[in-house]
Design a protein around this nucleic acid. Sequence first.
RNA 1: CGGAAUGUGGUGUAACGGCUAACAUCCCUGGUUUGGGACCAGGUGACUCCGGGUUCGAAUCCCGGCAUUCCGACCA
Length: 425
Amino acid sequence: MRQSHLFTKTRKDAPKDEVSKNAILLTRAGFIHKEMAGVYTMLPLGLRVLSKIESSIRRHMDQIGNELLMTALSPKETWETTGRIETVDVLMKTLPANKVSEEKSSASYILGSTHEEMITPIAQEYTRSYKDLPVSFYQIQTKFRNEARAKSGLLRGREFRMKDLYSFHKDEDDLKTYYEIAKKSYLDIFREIGLGDDTFITLAGGGDFTKDFSHEFQTLCEAGEDTIYLDRKNNIAYNKEVVTDENAQKLGIDFTAFEQVKACEVGNIFPLNTKFSKAFDYTYTDENGDKKDVYMGCYGIGPTRLMGVIVEKYADDKGLIWPESIAPFSIHLLTLSKDKSGESYEKAEQLYKNLTDAHVEVLFDDREESAGAKFADSDLIGIPMRVVVSDKSLASGGVEIKERKSEKSEIVTIEQLLTMYTKEC
RNA sequence: CGGAAUGUGGUGUAACGGCUAACAUCCCUGGUUUGGGACCAGGUGACUCCGGGUUCGAAUCCCGGCAUUCCGACCA
């Protein structure tokens, strides 16, 4: 993509209505645009990152589930069936927007904050035999939660992206088996998008869902809302909420020996068992023709929150630093020449063409800006590799390459650069 | 949902109760410049969040909303 065609611009000043690092940098670099507290538009650069995160999640989820797309609007009745219309305080309801529509219909709907109420009847309709089980469904979708306090930019929004996976099983053992598969898949995802080393499975309270512990995936992050008790050696953590004397005794654990760290919950998984299948009277027929309860699990990851966490963890004082796997582009190509008929400009154009022909994702800064402005923007946007084509670089034998995360730059020939990026494909 | 702070051109800031609301940046014109957010000249752009009140006079003081941020509670 040519930067001259990118409608967003960078800003030197931080927006005054943001304090969190992720919101400030993503706004300054033109990745997001705030609409309201906790509600952000994804601008082109932001959408590219979000899409990469979601693609990565999708690749892993396709191994263990069927993708579908449920509706964001849901009928009130289904929430009345489970009783959660009374107990889930983040539910948003639609209202007729004006007098005219009020006269037409006074119906109101629930905006989906989670989809157990919708997926269970779908599973019930299609999978009623032991031969159909286990089965699992997932979607990546925009969710709505009326958080009492949206905060920390992308970390806690009222409208956000979520990947939600639901699994259905013949019995508890089968659920447990799948639960472990899902757990592993989640760890693979976090590793792939660059959070592997700092993300820990964390035992937490099960909320309404279960009396047992549930599992959260917590990424070490100062801006996170949670505190976890971490045992790095054994690769396990406990959410502060379950660190009680009672649990210490029950589990035979000395929590004082654990490291206390701030973390952000990037995923969670729950064994729901029969909570929802009972509410919807969902049973299957077993080999003997008997009706049996269906066991269920649910598993969530928040792509927008992941994006925020990655910014919080990897940015420096100059701007964003994207991990390779989710960067909006692989290469930020800069020409320092404004003379569009000059040699260095033409070399840059040719290089841009060769790279994009080879399916390398390149952001080409072809704008008429000063060198300093281009470097500053490049640092702010945070694409992993910067490639500069200028009279100076050509005189030194080629193009200058510099990784965003490194201070060092080096000169390579154009052929060397092309080889580096095209032989991977 | 409780508490606190803040609302001024697109963005970031300034302005004692008193003159045409100032500065920077962005944007537009022209010129100059080209390896770390260049420079010169000119120009556009604000009912000072909304509604009341006090006052001869309100961006400024008071009351009520709304919005944003932070702290706390909450967080399927």
